[in-house]
Amino acid sequence: MFKFDFPVFDADNHLYETADAFTRHLPERHRNLFRFVEIKGRKKLVVRDTITEFIPNPTFDVVARPGAHMAFYSGDNPDGKTLRELTGKPIRPLAAFREPAPRLALLDEQGIAKTLMFPTLASLIEERLRDDPYLTQVAIRAFNEWLYDEWKYDYEGRIFATPIVNPCVLDEGIAELDRVVERGARAVLMRPGPVGGLRGLRSPFLPDFDPFWARVRESGIVVALHASDSGFQEYVNTWEGSEGSEYVAFRPKTFPEVIDGGRVIHDTFASAVCHGMLTRFPEVKLLSVENGGSWVGPLLHDLDRAYKKMPQEFPEHPRDIFTRNVWVNPFWEDSTLGLVDLVGVDRVCFGSDYPHPEGLADPLSWREELGGLPEASTKKIMSDNLFDLMGLSPAA
């Protein structure tokens, strides 16, 4: 196990929700919005009246071993094994996967000082309710209440759970942002992609949403754009003729694997720059988590090309906007050194995705992916950058 002489800050840890995570705080009139049903001896989650397969085992009674899919995601799968075959025998979730006090003890064992803590199942909420923005807000608030019950938003100054925010209903989105900030949230989770509305989908970075971003700026909170079910499956369905087909985690297919390549996060940040939010609010801090880093080069190329064609449309160079406002957590299997060359070492953050199977079994083994990077740069990526972004002192 790796050891460091500086406090490591992990940008990407995960919890596994309890069965009542979505329902404990739902208003009575929405009590059937989420519920479990049993099918052939297995519990499945129903959202409104539709069974979702988004997570094969939504109760997390058993889970895949941390790091079980490392061979797949590193491209080391010469025998062509499926994810199920690579997963092997599932395990019972540790208490540390569901509770903050045991998680602190585990962080000590792993040599991690602080971490951002993201949910797992909650990323299904917004896509499955995108046609009803008011119901989306009800579900988000109920989940955030559960998250505060179980984890708080700042646990012992070391675990920073990330409540969800969504400005699809502007006043409600601002109210929820204010609520979680008042309760101590230091980072919030926003789904990459457009937000739902009564008139369809649109970018959250359009001027209509400026009051929300004004509050983000005033609070100084970090907005983490963590990989989610962002609706990309709908685009895939138009190619595959599978209308209504649902995105299911851990069931990769060749076509989406080839065409995605960071499409959603690329377009999300293109909107944040081109629709002007990051110029109107240059103090806003956006952190890309678990979206990889391979999309950054194509995005910067596309922004450069657009600027050369129509510089009059940009009040400042779009590359400068990106490198001022955006921090990136690459996949462990990415070329981190290439990303450093693109955006600078100050904008790259370590994240292990523990305890998910596609993450690292030993979080600090991420150091192996940094090759010959100088120790000072390693310290920035695995410690200083996230401390600075979060406004925290390594000595605390």
Results as ranks from 00 to 15, higher is better:
Gly193Ile: 09
Pro192Arg: 14
Val188Gln: 06
Phe205Ala: 06
Pro204Thr: 13
His226Cys: 02
Glu218Lys: 15
Pro204Phe: 07
Gly220Pro: 09
Val222Leu: 11
Asp208Gln: 14
His226Ser: 07
Ser219Ile: 01
Pro194Met: 09
Trp213Ala: 03
Leu201Asn: 10
Met190Gly: 04
Ala224Asp: 07
Phe205Arg: 00
Val188Ala: 12
Gly197Asp: 04
Leu206Gly: 12
Pro207Phe: 10
Ala214Pro: 06
Asp210Ser: 15
Phe212Ala: 00
Phe205Lys: 02
Val222Phe: 14
Leu189Asp: 13
Arg202Lys: 15
Pro204Ala: 07
Ala187Arg: 02
Pro211Arg: 13
Ala214Ile: 07
Phe209Ile: 05
Ala214Cys: 09
Trp213Gln: 00
Arg215Phe: 08
Pro207Lys: 09
Gly197Gln: 03
Arg202Asp: 10
Gly196Cys: 07
Ile221Tyr: 04
Arg202Val: 04
Phe212His: 02
Arg191Ser: 02
Glu218Gly: 05
Ala214His: 12
Arg217Phe: 00
Pro207Val: 05
Gly220Ala: 14
Ala224Leu: 09
Val216Cys: 11
Ile221Leu: 03
Pro211His: 07
Trp213Cys: 00
Gly197Lys: 04
Asp208Leu: 15
Gly193Phe: 14
Leu201Pro: 03
Leu189Thr: 10
Arg215Pro: 00
Ala187Val: 10
Pro211Tyr: 09
Leu198Asp: 03
Val195Pro: 01
Phe209Gly: 04
Gly197Cys: 08
Arg199Gln: 14
Ser219Gly: 02
Pro207Ile: 03
Val216Phe: 09
Leu206Ser: 12
Asp210Ala: 14
Arg202Phe: 15
Pro204Trp: 11
Arg202Cys: 11
Gly196Lys: 06
Pro192Glu: 02
Gly197Phe: 10
Gly196Tyr: 07
Val216His: 05
Val216Gly: 08
Gly220Trp: 08
Val223Ser: 06
Ile221Thr: 06
Ala214Gly: 12
Gly220Lys: 10
Leu201Thr: 11
Pro194Asp: 08
Pro204Met: 05
Val222Asn: 04
Arg191Glu: 02
Val223Ile: 11
